[in-house]
Simulated assay, not measured.
Amino acid sequence: MIIDFKILIELRHWLHAHPEVSRQEVETGRYMRRFLSDHAAPDEIVSLAGAGFAAVYEGRAAGKTVMLRAELDALPIHEINEDLPYRSLQDGVGHKCGHDGHMAILAGVAQGLADRPAEGRVVLLFQPDEETGTGAWSCCTHPDFEKIRPDVAFALHNLPGFPKGAVVCKTGTFASAVKYAAFRFTGKEAHSAQPETGASPSFAMAELTLAAREIQARYDGPDAYALIVPVYTGMGVQSSGVCPAKGEVHFTLRAAEGRTVERMWTDLLGEAEKRANAYGLALETETKEEFAANANSQVSFDMIRMAAAEAGADFIEIDRPFRWGEDFGEITQRYEGGMFGLGAGEHQPDLHNPDYDFPDTLLEPGIKMFSNLIQLALRQEARF
């Protein structure tokens, strides 16, 4: 297996300098297709939703299909790393989750597939829109996904705060179920000297925010966490004489299991309807983003642990899921699979910080892990 790390680092730096947010990753997708064509040509490229695509590497004989996933999108976060020669060229947009590194890792895996597996096939999924929770779903439900449906699928995520190169994993939920939703109240404007002649959403919004804290307390516990976090409010105009008619408040709901999120959502919706009725308001809700819990099966966990041992990597088994959402859960709900973390260093800035930069030294351990998983998954005796 010959990997050209110089070219991979150049690729990662180009991606870092040219970030595109979710649903706008057109040039990122084109660049990755071009890179693969020039340096690790697949047997087929299958176009999927948005800018997403899958590169297919056919083995010399029929067998299982193993899929690996990387994400195309960046975040609407302005980079503050002024000293980086490859800093983001897009104001207000940056690869602050390390997806540039994930793509470069998959490109390195593609280089290693030049000789093709003895049997089976490898599918490298370059997925759009992870940060909105819609990308994996839109790819899985695309008609052409049937051409590449996997027997097993794996993904990784770089993790600041853990030793560099360490593999982090657990069985069951690895990344949480998340729902991001908006509540919009509409009443009637009035003079602020006569608020009783209108219908303001102000107290309904305030009471709903306080009720959210009480609902969270009912589900949160030492054995399983639950969170309801108000993340946005907006109401009225900046005028001393106008009592507002419209307002909205947004919440993010998180838990290790999707059913807990749905129960909290049902309770929160009930409280919102109660407040709307009490204050004479119309209520409209919108689920803006939703992430299924990312669950690792025992089989996939064991394969990840074995791959780490073969790579000589430290293996850290955590006992609680990460609180962030990851839309790879849409894939593990449908197919056998698992996700693991790759330590990015204990003193790195955190993910989604404006100064985060994926360490180039993670490319090699990431490629090793995925390459080992390919070999494990395509063996005759693999059971899944």
Rank of each mutant, 00 (worst) to 15 (best):
G343P: 06
Y356V: 02
V249R: 00
L210E: 08
A55T: 04
G338W: 01
D357N: 05
H102F: 00
D144C: 13
Y180C: 02
Y31D: 12
R263V: 02
A344H: 07
F384V: 11
A110E: 02
I367E: 08
P19E: 01
I2V: 15
T171R: 15
I331Q: 03
A114P: 13
L208M: 01
R184P: 15
F145M: 00
E286T: 14
V46L: 06
D220L: 11
V109D: 02
A255E: 02
E326P: 01
W14D: 13
G52D: 14
A70Q: 05
A51T: 01
E207T: 14
T266Q: 13
S371C: 08
V229W: 09
C169T: 15
P201M: 01
A295M: 12
A307T: 00
A118D: 12
R383P: 07
A54K: 07
L75E: 04
G366F: 03
L8C: 03
G187R: 05
F251D: 09
A182S: 08
A295T: 14
K368H: 08
D327S: 10
F5V: 10
E317A: 10
L113W: 03
H13V: 04
F322P: 02
V231T: 15
T287K: 03
V21N: 04
A114E: 11
A377H: 09
Y57M: 09
A245F: 10
Y86F: 15
R69N: 08
A282I: 09
L124A: 06
E27F: 04
E257G: 04
T252Q: 13
A55I: 03
D43G: 14
F183D: 03
H250G: 05
R30C: 11
K164P: 01
N372L: 02
A308Y: 06
G133S: 05
A190Y: 07
A282L: 10
A382K: 03
A311P: 07
A204L: 03
D43F: 11
N277K: 14
L227F: 13
L378I: 01
P359T: 04
